[in-house]
Amino acid sequence: MKKKLTLGSVLRFLFLGFFVAISVGPLLWVIMSSFKTNKEILSNAFALPSSWAPVGYKAALEMAPIGTFYKNSIIISVVSTVLNVVVVSMAAYVLARHKFRGNTFIVLLLSMSMLIPTASLLMPIYKIMTALKLLNTRTALILVYAALGLPTSLFLFRSYFQGIPKELEEAAYIDGAGFFRTFFTIVFPLAKPGLATGAILQFLTSWNEFMFALILTSDTSVRTLPLALNYFTSQFSFNYTAMFAALTMVILPSIIVYAVLQEQITSSMVDGAVKG
């Protein structure tokens, strides 16, 4: 069956094409510009670079400790994800499985955090971290990030635990396994798909967060990748090539990881939005 070329299909093509252009265009332009010289960047935005030598990348790496930013981002994102998954899954398990007085109250209390625009808590969190002497440490960001994902993780995990048949745990109890062992050796492995969804979302939140990183840290030795960009715009104001190279080094890994893991990431995002 050959489709006819109708006005409708042409319009649809243009409509979808426009959004492709504004989505990919700027990214491709950034990557292309990272190989151009300053002069080439200023003279023609669309011309291809005259050479593909990574001059800008060398300059960017010399001018800013991008490696350190990467290291910090990885440490903070991984630790906050582990912390979030372990701490929230334990609570979600109790809230999903065990009836006790105050259960509903705790669920309601914790779900309150979903309604709060986090910017509103900026100043108290800054004061608390100052009081705990955690200002300008990775620990501060790890704690804040683990909490940012708390409501989403809680609802994802709780509904996942509710879907696991009770019989398996009961069998474990009969075999003499205690409460803690049952959770960590039976329930936790069974809930892996649900936990993975929460972990992916938590990792993305931590990896991309900017505002708390900006206010809670000040030294390059503990700052994360999103802040590196803040640093570039002022540092590299006259070396456009290096700035574009730095930008590319920040965006390209995210895009590649997304392209590779897109099925899992996409379904996690949908689950997180719908259930969370």
Partner: peptide
């Protein structure tokens, strides 16, 4: 996938 690119890049970038 393409429409998601701007959303997976950090907002700061």
């Amino acid at each position: 996938t393409i429409y998601m690119f701007p959303n997976v890049v950090s907002a700061a970038a």
